[in-house]
Design a protein around this nucleic acid. Structure first.
Lengths: 243, 243
DNA sequence: CCGCGTCCTTAACTTTTGTTGGAACCGGGA
DNA sequence: TCCCGGTTCCAACAAAAGTTAAGGACGCGG
Protein backbone atom coordinates (compact mmCIF):
# COMPACT_ATOMS: atom_id res chain seq x y z
CA UNK A 1 0.00 0.00 0.00
CA UNK A 2 1.44 3.39 -0.98
CA UNK A 3 2.55 5.62 1.84
CA UNK A 4 0.20 8.48 1.02
CA UNK A 5 -2.82 6.21 1.15
CA UNK A 6 -1.77 5.14 4.62
CA UNK A 7 -1.57 8.70 5.88
CA UNK A 8 -4.43 10.14 3.86
CA UNK A 9 -7.24 9.13 6.21
CA UNK A 10 -5.35 10.40 9.25
CA UNK A 11 -4.66 13.78 7.72
CA UNK A 12 -8.19 14.12 6.44
CA UNK A 13 -9.52 13.49 9.89
CA UNK A 14 -7.14 15.85 11.67
CA UNK A 15 -8.09 18.51 9.18
CA UNK A 16 -11.67 18.28 10.36
CA UNK A 17 -11.04 19.27 13.93
CA UNK A 18 -7.91 21.41 13.64
CA UNK A 19 -6.57 24.04 11.30
CA UNK A 20 -3.72 22.01 9.91
CA UNK A 21 -0.96 23.73 7.92
CA UNK A 22 1.07 22.40 4.99
CA UNK A 23 4.09 22.37 7.22
CA UNK A 24 2.29 20.16 9.74
CA UNK A 25 1.32 17.82 6.95
CA UNK A 26 4.93 17.47 5.94
CA UNK A 27 5.86 16.65 9.51
CA UNK A 28 3.26 13.93 9.61
CA UNK A 29 4.19 12.56 6.23
CA UNK A 30 7.77 12.21 7.43
CA UNK A 31 6.67 9.93 10.26
CA UNK A 32 7.95 6.39 9.82
CA UNK A 33 5.06 3.94 9.92
CA UNK A 34 5.38 0.19 9.94
CA UNK A 35 2.35 -1.53 8.51
CA UNK A 36 1.02 -4.92 9.58
CA UNK A 37 -1.99 -7.03 8.72
CA UNK A 38 -4.26 -8.33 11.47
CA UNK A 39 -7.00 -10.95 11.33
CA UNK A 40 -10.42 -10.27 12.81
CA UNK A 41 -10.91 -10.56 16.57
CA UNK A 42 -7.24 -10.16 17.38
CA UNK A 43 -5.77 -8.22 20.30
CA UNK A 44 -3.52 -5.35 19.25
CA UNK A 45 -2.58 -4.13 22.72
CA UNK A 46 -3.72 -5.63 25.98
CA UNK A 47 -4.73 -4.21 29.31
CA UNK A 48 -1.63 -4.00 31.50
CA UNK A 49 0.82 -3.96 28.62
CA UNK A 50 3.39 -1.25 28.15
CA UNK A 51 3.04 0.23 24.69
CA UNK A 52 5.96 1.53 22.65
CA UNK A 53 3.98 2.44 19.55
CA UNK A 54 0.70 3.99 18.63
CA UNK A 55 -1.57 2.27 16.19
CA UNK A 56 -3.06 4.00 13.15
CA UNK A 57 -5.99 2.18 11.60
CA UNK A 58 -5.32 2.16 7.88
CA UNK A 59 -8.16 -0.18 7.04
CA UNK A 60 -10.71 -2.17 9.02
CA UNK A 61 -12.56 -1.71 12.29
CA UNK A 62 -11.28 -1.88 15.87
CA UNK A 63 -12.78 -1.66 19.34
CA UNK A 64 -11.51 -0.84 22.78
CA UNK A 65 -12.81 -2.76 25.77
CA UNK A 66 -12.30 -3.65 29.40
CA UNK A 67 -13.01 -6.98 31.06
CA UNK A 68 -13.97 -7.15 34.74
CA UNK A 69 -13.30 -9.86 37.29
CA UNK A 70 -16.61 -11.60 36.63
CA UNK A 71 -15.53 -12.00 33.03
CA UNK A 72 -18.00 -9.51 31.63
CA UNK A 73 -16.67 -7.30 28.89
CA UNK A 74 -17.59 -3.71 28.13
CA UNK A 75 -16.85 -2.18 24.76
CA UNK A 76 -15.77 1.43 25.22
CA UNK A 77 -15.50 2.69 21.67
CA UNK A 78 -15.46 1.68 18.04
CA UNK A 79 -12.73 2.81 15.69
CA UNK A 80 -12.51 3.31 11.97
CA UNK A 81 -9.76 4.02 9.44
CA UNK A 82 -7.78 7.19 10.02
CA UNK A 83 -8.02 6.98 13.79
CA UNK A 84 -5.31 6.31 16.37
CA UNK A 85 -7.24 4.56 19.11
CA UNK A 86 -4.32 4.21 21.49
CA UNK A 87 -2.82 7.68 21.14
CA UNK A 88 -3.26 7.90 24.91
CA UNK A 89 -0.49 5.34 25.37
CA UNK A 90 1.98 8.07 24.37
CA UNK A 91 1.83 9.45 27.90
CA UNK A 92 -0.06 6.74 29.78
CA UNK A 93 2.37 4.00 28.99
CA UNK A 94 0.68 1.09 30.68
CA UNK A 95 -2.62 0.25 29.05
CA UNK A 96 -5.76 0.26 31.16
CA UNK A 97 -7.86 -1.48 28.50
CA UNK A 98 -7.66 -3.70 25.44
CA UNK A 99 -7.50 -2.65 21.83
CA UNK A 100 -8.48 -5.31 19.33
CA UNK A 101 -9.62 -5.70 15.76
CA UNK A 102 -13.25 -6.35 14.88
CA UNK A 103 -12.54 -7.16 11.23
CA UNK A 104 -9.37 -8.08 9.39
CA UNK A 105 -7.39 -4.85 9.52
CA UNK A 106 -4.36 -3.04 8.19
CA UNK A 107 -2.64 -1.24 11.04
CA UNK A 108 0.23 1.22 10.92
CA UNK A 109 2.50 1.53 13.93
CA UNK A 110 4.20 4.79 14.82
CA UNK A 111 6.82 4.71 17.55
CA UNK A 112 6.32 6.75 20.69
CA UNK A 113 9.86 8.08 20.19
CA UNK A 114 9.01 9.64 16.87
CA UNK A 115 5.73 11.02 18.12
CA UNK A 116 7.44 12.52 21.16
CA UNK A 117 10.07 14.12 18.96
CA UNK A 118 7.38 15.54 16.73
CA UNK A 119 5.57 16.77 19.81
CA UNK A 120 8.68 18.62 21.01
CA UNK A 121 9.39 20.05 17.61
CA UNK A 122 5.95 21.34 16.76
CA UNK A 123 3.51 22.57 19.40
CA UNK A 124 0.89 22.88 16.67
CA UNK A 125 0.99 19.21 15.85
CA UNK A 126 1.11 18.39 19.53
CA UNK A 127 -1.99 20.47 20.01
CA UNK A 128 -3.69 18.61 17.20
CA UNK A 129 -2.97 15.25 18.75
CA UNK A 130 -3.94 16.51 22.15
CA UNK A 131 -7.25 17.68 20.77
CA UNK A 132 -7.65 14.23 19.28
CA UNK A 133 -7.37 12.59 22.70
CA UNK A 134 -9.79 15.17 24.04
CA UNK A 135 -12.52 14.33 21.55
CA UNK A 136 -11.82 10.73 22.42
CA UNK A 137 -12.66 11.59 26.02
CA UNK A 138 -15.76 13.48 24.87
CA UNK A 139 -16.94 10.33 23.16
CA UNK A 140 -16.44 8.38 26.35
CA UNK A 141 -18.56 10.90 28.20
CA UNK A 142 -21.39 10.43 25.74
CA UNK A 143 -20.94 6.66 25.97
CA UNK A 144 -21.40 6.87 29.74
CA UNK A 145 -24.64 8.76 29.24
CA UNK A 146 -25.77 6.25 26.68
CA UNK A 147 -25.18 3.25 28.88
CA UNK A 148 -26.31 5.00 32.05
CA UNK A 149 -29.48 6.78 31.06
CA UNK A 150 -30.98 5.72 27.77
CA UNK A 151 -33.35 2.79 27.30
CA UNK A 152 -31.81 -0.07 25.34
CA UNK A 153 -33.34 0.73 21.93
CA UNK A 154 -32.11 4.32 22.18
CA UNK A 155 -28.66 3.07 23.14
CA UNK A 156 -28.52 0.97 20.04
CA UNK A 157 -29.68 3.79 17.79
CA UNK A 158 -27.25 6.21 19.39
CA UNK A 159 -24.21 4.03 18.87
CA UNK A 160 -25.31 3.46 15.30
CA UNK A 161 -25.69 7.15 14.54
CA UNK A 162 -22.40 8.03 16.18
CA UNK A 163 -20.66 5.48 14.02
CA UNK A 164 -22.49 6.69 10.95
CA UNK A 165 -21.51 10.32 11.49
CA UNK A 166 -17.89 9.34 11.84
CA UNK A 167 -18.01 7.10 8.78
CA UNK A 168 -19.54 9.98 6.87
CA UNK A 169 -16.39 12.04 7.43
CA UNK A 170 -14.21 9.43 5.79
CA UNK A 171 -16.63 8.85 2.94
CA UNK A 172 -17.72 5.41 4.01
CA UNK A 173 -21.49 5.75 3.82
CA UNK A 174 -23.32 3.70 1.25
CA UNK A 175 -26.62 5.49 0.70
CA UNK A 176 -28.77 4.78 3.72
CA UNK A 177 -26.63 1.95 4.92
CA UNK A 178 -23.21 1.55 6.46
CA UNK A 179 -20.91 -1.02 8.01
CA UNK A 180 -21.08 -1.87 11.68
CA UNK A 181 -19.22 -5.16 11.89
CA UNK A 182 -20.30 -6.36 15.32
CA UNK A 183 -21.99 -9.56 16.36
CA UNK A 184 -25.05 -9.26 18.56
CA UNK A 185 -22.88 -10.42 21.42
CA UNK A 186 -20.58 -7.46 20.82
CA UNK A 187 -23.48 -5.08 20.45
CA UNK A 188 -24.60 -6.23 23.86
CA UNK A 189 -21.13 -5.55 25.23
CA UNK A 190 -21.20 -2.07 23.75
CA UNK A 191 -24.64 -1.23 25.14
CA UNK A 192 -24.23 -2.82 28.54
CA UNK A 193 -26.88 -5.47 27.95
CA UNK A 194 -26.80 -9.21 27.29
CA UNK A 195 -26.69 -10.72 23.83
CA UNK A 196 -30.21 -12.07 24.27
CA UNK A 197 -31.53 -8.66 25.10
CA UNK A 198 -29.56 -7.12 22.25
CA UNK A 199 -31.38 -9.52 19.98
CA UNK A 200 -34.73 -8.50 21.43
CA UNK A 201 -33.93 -4.84 20.87
CA UNK A 202 -32.77 -5.38 17.31
CA UNK A 203 -35.92 -7.34 16.61
CA UNK A 204 -37.95 -4.50 18.03
CA UNK A 205 -36.43 -1.68 15.96
CA UNK A 206 -36.67 -3.91 12.91
CA UNK A 207 -40.37 -4.56 13.50
CA UNK A 208 -40.94 -0.86 14.11
CA UNK A 209 -39.52 -0.21 10.68
CA UNK A 210 -36.79 2.02 12.04
CA UNK A 211 -33.56 0.28 11.16
CA UNK A 212 -32.37 -3.05 9.86
CA UNK A 213 -29.23 -4.74 11.11
CA UNK A 214 -27.85 -7.64 9.22
CA UNK A 215 -24.49 -9.31 9.09
CA UNK A 216 -22.58 -6.26 10.21
CA UNK A 217 -24.50 -3.77 8.12
CA UNK A 218 -26.97 -1.15 9.27
CA UNK A 219 -29.72 0.01 6.93
CA UNK A 220 -31.85 2.92 8.01
CA UNK A 221 -35.50 2.44 7.14
CA UNK A 222 -37.03 5.54 8.72
CA UNK A 223 -34.56 8.33 9.26
CA UNK A 224 -36.92 10.48 11.28
CA UNK A 225 -37.83 7.78 13.76
CA UNK A 226 -34.19 6.73 13.90
CA UNK A 227 -33.01 10.20 14.90
CA UNK A 228 -35.82 10.58 17.37
CA UNK A 229 -35.06 7.28 19.00
CA UNK A 230 -31.33 7.94 19.24
CA UNK A 231 -31.61 11.35 20.89
CA UNK A 232 -28.40 12.21 19.07
CA UNK A 233 -26.66 15.56 19.25
CA UNK A 234 -23.32 15.37 17.49
CA UNK A 235 -21.79 18.39 19.20
CA UNK A 236 -19.70 16.13 21.39
CA UNK A 237 -17.83 14.86 18.34
CA UNK A 238 -16.26 18.31 18.02
CA UNK A 239 -16.14 17.91 14.26
CA UNK A 240 -15.23 21.41 13.25
CA UNK A 241 -12.14 23.54 13.63
CA UNK A 242 -13.38 25.00 16.86
CA UNK A 243 -12.08 28.42 17.60
CA UNK B 1 -6.36 32.60 51.00
CA UNK B 2 -2.60 32.74 50.36
CA UNK B 3 -1.46 32.05 46.84
CA UNK B 4 0.68 29.03 47.74
CA UNK B 5 -2.24 27.30 49.41
CA UNK B 6 -4.23 27.75 46.24
CA UNK B 7 -1.59 26.11 44.10
CA UNK B 8 -0.37 23.56 46.63
CA UNK B 9 -3.00 20.92 45.95
CA UNK B 10 -2.56 21.23 42.19
CA UNK B 11 1.20 20.85 42.36
CA UNK B 12 0.97 17.97 44.79
CA UNK B 13 -1.32 16.15 42.44
CA UNK B 14 0.72 16.79 39.31
CA UNK B 15 3.74 15.51 41.17
CA UNK B 16 2.03 12.19 41.61
CA UNK B 17 1.66 11.37 37.96
CA UNK B 18 4.55 13.29 36.41
CA UNK B 19 8.15 13.99 37.24
CA UNK B 20 7.78 17.68 37.87
CA UNK B 21 10.87 19.91 38.06
CA UNK B 22 11.47 23.01 40.16
CA UNK B 23 11.42 25.04 37.03
CA UNK B 24 7.98 23.71 36.14
CA UNK B 25 6.75 24.58 39.60
CA UNK B 26 7.91 28.15 39.14
CA UNK B 27 6.03 28.33 35.86
CA UNK B 28 2.88 27.17 37.53
CA UNK B 29 3.30 29.45 40.51
CA UNK B 30 3.57 32.38 38.13
CA UNK B 31 0.13 31.61 36.68
CA UNK B 32 -2.40 34.32 37.51
CA UNK B 33 -5.40 32.78 39.22
CA UNK B 34 -8.57 34.60 40.08
CA UNK B 35 -10.41 33.06 42.97
CA UNK B 36 -14.17 33.01 43.47
CA UNK B 37 -16.54 31.50 45.98
CA UNK B 38 -19.42 29.34 44.80
CA UNK B 39 -22.44 28.08 46.71
CA UNK B 40 -23.43 24.42 46.60
CA UNK B 41 -25.31 23.11 43.56
CA UNK B 42 -24.22 25.93 41.29
CA UNK B 43 -23.26 25.62 37.63
CA UNK B 44 -19.68 26.67 36.89
CA UNK B 45 -19.72 26.06 33.13
CA UNK B 46 -22.66 24.81 31.13
CA UNK B 47 -23.03 22.46 28.22
CA UNK B 48 -22.81 24.49 25.02
CA UNK B 49 -20.93 27.38 26.56
CA UNK B 50 -17.62 28.61 25.24
CA UNK B 51 -15.06 28.62 28.03
CA UNK B 52 -12.26 31.16 28.29
CA UNK B 53 -10.83 29.91 31.58
CA UNK B 54 -10.08 26.65 33.26
CA UNK B 55 -11.28 26.04 36.75
CA UNK B 56 -9.01 24.82 39.55
CA UNK B 57 -10.83 23.46 42.57
CA UNK B 58 -9.18 25.03 45.59
CA UNK B 59 -11.70 23.74 48.07
CA UNK B 60 -14.98 21.83 47.88
CA UNK B 61 -16.42 19.16 45.61
CA UNK B 62 -17.60 19.39 42.00
CA UNK B 63 -19.22 17.06 39.49
CA UNK B 64 -19.50 16.90 35.74
CA UNK B 65 -22.73 15.76 34.14
CA UNK B 66 -24.80 15.62 30.99
CA UNK B 67 -28.55 15.92 30.70
CA UNK B 68 -30.43 14.18 27.90
CA UNK B 69 -33.62 15.20 26.11
CA UNK B 70 -35.84 13.22 28.46
CA UNK B 71 -34.46 15.29 31.31
CA UNK B 72 -32.44 12.49 32.85
CA UNK B 73 -29.04 13.47 34.14
CA UNK B 74 -25.89 11.38 34.21
CA UNK B 75 -23.00 12.30 36.48
CA UNK B 76 -19.74 11.61 34.68
CA UNK B 77 -17.15 12.27 37.35
CA UNK B 78 -16.58 13.69 40.80
CA UNK B 79 -13.87 16.23 41.48
CA UNK B 80 -11.90 17.22 44.54
CA UNK B 81 -9.48 19.99 45.48
CA UNK B 82 -6.37 20.24 43.34
CA UNK B 83 -8.11 19.11 40.17
CA UNK B 84 -8.92 21.06 37.01
CA UNK B 85 -12.11 19.37 35.84
CA UNK B 86 -12.48 21.43 32.67
CA UNK B 87 -8.91 21.38 31.46
CA UNK B 88 -10.32 19.91 28.27
CA UNK B 89 -11.91 23.25 27.45
CA UNK B 90 -8.42 24.54 26.63
CA UNK B 91 -8.66 22.90 23.22
CA UNK B 92 -12.31 21.86 23.04
CA UNK B 93 -13.67 25.32 23.52
CA UNK B 94 -17.37 24.60 23.46
CA UNK B 95 -18.41 22.53 26.42
CA UNK B 96 -20.17 19.22 25.81
CA UNK B 97 -21.26 18.82 29.43
CA UNK B 98 -21.90 20.73 32.64
CA UNK B 99 -19.52 21.40 35.47
CA UNK B 100 -21.13 22.31 38.77
CA UNK B 101 -20.40 22.42 42.46
CA UNK B 102 -21.69 19.79 44.84
CA UNK B 103 -20.74 21.71 47.99
CA UNK B 104 -19.88 25.34 48.57
CA UNK B 105 -16.53 25.68 46.83
CA UNK B 106 -13.56 27.94 46.33
CA UNK B 107 -12.61 27.92 42.66
CA UNK B 108 -9.58 29.44 40.96
CA UNK B 109 -9.85 30.49 37.34
CA UNK B 110 -6.86 30.37 35.02
CA UNK B 111 -7.24 31.96 31.60
CA UNK B 112 -6.85 29.85 28.49
CA UNK B 113 -4.47 32.51 27.18
CA UNK B 114 -2.05 32.02 30.02
CA UNK B 115 -2.31 28.26 29.86
CA UNK B 116 -1.70 28.33 26.10
CA UNK B 117 1.34 30.53 26.56
CA UNK B 118 2.68 28.19 29.22
CA UNK B 119 2.00 25.30 26.91
CA UNK B 120 4.05 26.91 24.12
CA UNK B 121 6.85 27.85 26.46
CA UNK B 122 7.29 24.54 28.24
CA UNK B 123 6.63 21.22 26.55
CA UNK B 124 7.20 19.53 29.91
CA UNK B 125 4.35 21.36 31.56
CA UNK B 126 2.22 20.82 28.48
CA UNK B 127 2.92 17.12 28.74
CA UNK B 128 1.93 17.16 32.37
CA UNK B 129 -1.41 18.76 31.61
CA UNK B 130 -1.93 16.49 28.67
CA UNK B 131 -1.35 13.50 30.88
CA UNK B 132 -3.87 14.96 33.26
CA UNK B 133 -6.57 14.98 30.59
CA UNK B 134 -5.55 11.44 29.68
CA UNK B 135 -6.11 10.07 33.17
CA UNK B 136 -9.37 11.95 33.09
CA UNK B 137 -10.29 9.90 30.03
CA UNK B 138 -9.09 6.74 31.77
CA UNK B 139 -11.50 7.46 34.58
CA UNK B 140 -14.32 7.86 32.09
CA UNK B 141 -13.49 4.46 30.64
CA UNK B 142 -13.75 2.85 34.04
CA UNK B 143 -16.99 4.75 34.67
CA UNK B 144 -18.42 3.25 31.48
CA UNK B 145 -17.53 -0.21 32.71
CA UNK B 146 -19.03 0.53 36.08
CA UNK B 147 -22.34 1.70 34.71
CA UNK B 148 -22.41 -0.84 31.90
CA UNK B 149 -21.39 -4.09 33.55
CA UNK B 150 -21.45 -4.08 37.31
CA UNK B 151 -24.52 -4.81 39.45
CA UNK B 152 -25.77 -1.76 41.31
CA UNK B 153 -24.17 -2.51 44.70
CA UNK B 154 -20.79 -2.99 43.05
CA UNK B 155 -21.25 0.28 41.17
CA UNK B 156 -21.80 2.09 44.41
CA UNK B 157 -18.79 0.51 46.08
CA UNK B 158 -16.61 1.19 43.06
CA UNK B 159 -17.42 4.89 42.89
CA UNK B 160 -16.82 5.12 46.63
CA UNK B 161 -13.43 3.46 46.46
CA UNK B 162 -12.33 5.52 43.49
CA UNK B 163 -13.19 8.68 45.37
CA UNK B 164 -11.45 7.40 48.48
CA UNK B 165 -8.23 6.60 46.64
CA UNK B 166 -8.17 10.07 45.17
CA UNK B 167 -8.94 11.71 48.50
CA UNK B 168 -6.13 9.69 50.02
CA UNK B 169 -3.64 11.44 47.74
CA UNK B 170 -4.61 14.85 49.00
CA UNK B 171 -4.71 13.74 52.62
CA UNK B 172 -8.45 13.92 53.02
CA UNK B 173 -9.16 10.57 54.61
CA UNK B 174 -10.47 10.51 58.12
CA UNK B 175 -9.66 7.06 59.44
CA UNK B 176 -12.09 4.66 57.82
CA UNK B 177 -14.42 7.38 56.67
CA UNK B 178 -14.37 10.11 54.07
CA UNK B 179 -16.55 12.75 52.48
CA UNK B 180 -18.82 11.97 49.56
CA UNK B 181 -21.21 14.89 49.52
CA UNK B 182 -23.93 13.52 47.26
CA UNK B 183 -27.62 13.09 47.87
CA UNK B 184 -29.12 9.71 47.08
CA UNK B 185 -30.62 11.32 44.01
CA UNK B 186 -27.13 12.27 42.84
CA UNK B 187 -25.75 8.87 43.67
CA UNK B 188 -28.42 7.45 41.42
CA UNK B 189 -27.37 9.82 38.66
CA UNK B 190 -23.78 8.72 39.06
CA UNK B 191 -24.60 5.00 38.97
CA UNK B 192 -27.20 5.12 36.24
CA UNK B 193 -30.06 4.06 38.52
CA UNK B 194 -33.02 5.86 40.07
CA UNK B 195 -32.90 7.49 43.47
CA UNK B 196 -35.31 4.89 44.83
CA UNK B 197 -33.05 2.11 43.73
CA UNK B 198 -30.00 3.94 45.05
CA UNK B 199 -31.74 3.95 48.40
CA UNK B 200 -32.39 0.21 48.18
CA UNK B 201 -28.76 -0.45 47.37
CA UNK B 202 -27.48 1.73 50.20
CA UNK B 203 -29.82 -0.03 52.57
CA UNK B 204 -28.51 -3.35 51.35
CA UNK B 205 -24.80 -2.63 51.83
CA UNK B 206 -25.59 -1.12 55.20
CA UNK B 207 -27.46 -4.23 56.33
CA UNK B 208 -24.65 -6.41 55.01
CA UNK B 209 -22.31 -4.52 57.29
CA UNK B 210 -20.12 -3.43 54.41
CA UNK B 211 -20.35 0.34 54.38
CA UNK B 212 -22.40 3.09 55.95
CA UNK B 213 -23.45 6.20 54.06
CA UNK B 214 -24.83 9.11 55.94
CA UNK B 215 -25.28 12.74 55.14
CA UNK B 216 -22.47 12.88 52.61
CA UNK B 217 -20.04 10.73 54.53
CA UNK B 218 -18.93 7.18 53.81
CA UNK B 219 -17.80 4.93 56.64
CA UNK B 220 -16.30 1.59 55.76
CA UNK B 221 -17.43 -1.17 58.08
CA UNK B 222 -15.80 -4.20 56.47
CA UNK B 223 -12.87 -3.33 54.27
CA UNK B 224 -12.49 -6.83 52.86
CA UNK B 225 -16.10 -7.17 51.78
CA UNK B 226 -16.01 -3.60 50.50
CA UNK B 227 -13.04 -4.27 48.21
CA UNK B 228 -14.50 -7.53 47.06
CA UNK B 229 -17.81 -5.94 46.21
CA UNK B 230 -16.23 -3.03 44.35
CA UNK B 231 -14.02 -5.12 42.09
CA UNK B 232 -11.62 -2.19 42.20
CA UNK B 233 -8.25 -2.12 40.47
CA UNK B 234 -6.73 1.33 40.72
CA UNK B 235 -4.35 0.97 37.82
CA UNK B 236 -6.57 3.13 35.66
CA UNK B 237 -5.93 6.10 37.95
CA UNK B 238 -2.32 6.13 36.70
CA UNK B 239 -1.16 7.42 40.06
CA UNK B 240 2.56 6.99 39.68
CA UNK B 241 5.17 8.70 37.55
CA UNK B 242 4.80 6.12 34.85
CA UNK B 243 7.83 5.67 32.71
C1' DC C 1 -21.92 -32.14 -0.14
C1' DC C 2 -21.69 -32.93 4.59
C1' DG C 3 -20.57 -31.70 9.25
C1' DC C 4 -19.28 -28.37 12.49
C1' DG C 5 -19.11 -24.17 14.72
C1' DT C 6 -20.66 -19.58 15.20
C1' DC C 7 -24.22 -16.63 15.22
C1' DC C 8 -28.99 -15.60 15.34
C1' DT C 9 -33.46 -16.40 17.16
C1' DT C 10 -36.96 -17.46 20.40
C1' DA C 11 -39.46 -19.02 24.66
C1' DA C 12 -40.14 -19.42 29.65
C1' DC C 13 -38.85 -18.00 33.74
C1' DT C 14 -36.22 -15.12 37.30
C1' DT C 15 -34.17 -11.09 38.92
C1' DT C 16 -33.27 -6.43 38.84
C1' DT C 17 -34.71 -2.02 38.29
C1' DG C 18 -38.23 1.62 37.50
C1' DT C 19 -42.64 3.94 39.02
C1' DT C 20 -45.79 5.81 42.00
C1' DG C 21 -47.10 7.52 46.12
C1' DG C 22 -46.65 8.33 50.69
C1' DA C 23 -44.60 8.62 55.57
C1' DA C 24 -40.86 9.91 58.53
C1' DC C 25 -36.91 12.73 59.36
C1' DC C 26 -34.04 16.73 59.61
C1' DG C 27 -32.11 21.30 59.40
C1' DG C 28 -32.66 26.04 58.69
C1' DG C 29 -35.29 30.23 58.57
C1' DA C 30 -39.43 33.05 60.04
C1' DT D 1 -40.54 27.39 68.47
C1' DC D 2 -42.81 25.82 64.51
C1' DC D 3 -43.15 25.29 59.89
C1' DC D 4 -41.26 24.21 55.39
C1' DG D 5 -38.67 21.99 51.80
C1' DG D 6 -35.63 18.73 50.78
C1' DT D 7 -34.06 14.44 51.83
C1' DT D 8 -34.44 9.67 53.26
C1' DC D 9 -36.92 5.61 53.49
C1' DC D 10 -40.26 2.25 52.19
C1' DA D 11 -43.97 -0.65 50.03
C1' DA D 12 -46.60 -2.39 46.04
C1' DC D 13 -46.77 -2.93 41.54
C1' DA D 14 -44.98 -2.59 36.55
C1' DA D 15 -41.49 -2.85 33.25
C1' DA D 16 -36.96 -3.93 31.68
C1' DA D 17 -33.33 -6.91 31.52
C1' DG D 18 -30.86 -11.29 32.83
C1' DT D 19 -30.73 -16.49 32.60
C1' DT D 20 -31.16 -20.79 30.67
C1' DA D 21 -32.04 -23.67 27.16
C1' DA D 22 -32.75 -25.03 22.63
C1' DG D 23 -33.70 -24.94 17.58
C1' DG D 24 -32.42 -23.00 13.15
C1' DA D 25 -29.58 -20.44 9.68
C1' DC D 26 -25.41 -19.82 7.60
C1' DG D 27 -20.74 -20.14 6.09
C1' DC D 28 -16.49 -22.71 6.00
C1' DG D 29 -13.47 -26.45 5.59
C1' DG D 30 -12.85 -31.21 4.81
Amino acid sequence: MPSDTIRAALIRRLRVSSAITDEDIKEIEALPISVRQYPAEMAVVRDGERATDCCLIVDGFCARSKTIASGKRQILSLHIPGEIPDLMSLFLHVMDHDLSTLTPATLGFISHDNLQKLHRRSPEVAEMFWRDTLTDAAMFREWIVNVGQRPAPARLAHVMIELRERLRLIGRLDGDSFEMPLTQEQIGEALGITAVHANRVIKQVRQDGIVEFNRGRVTVLDERKFQELADFDGRYLHQSPTL
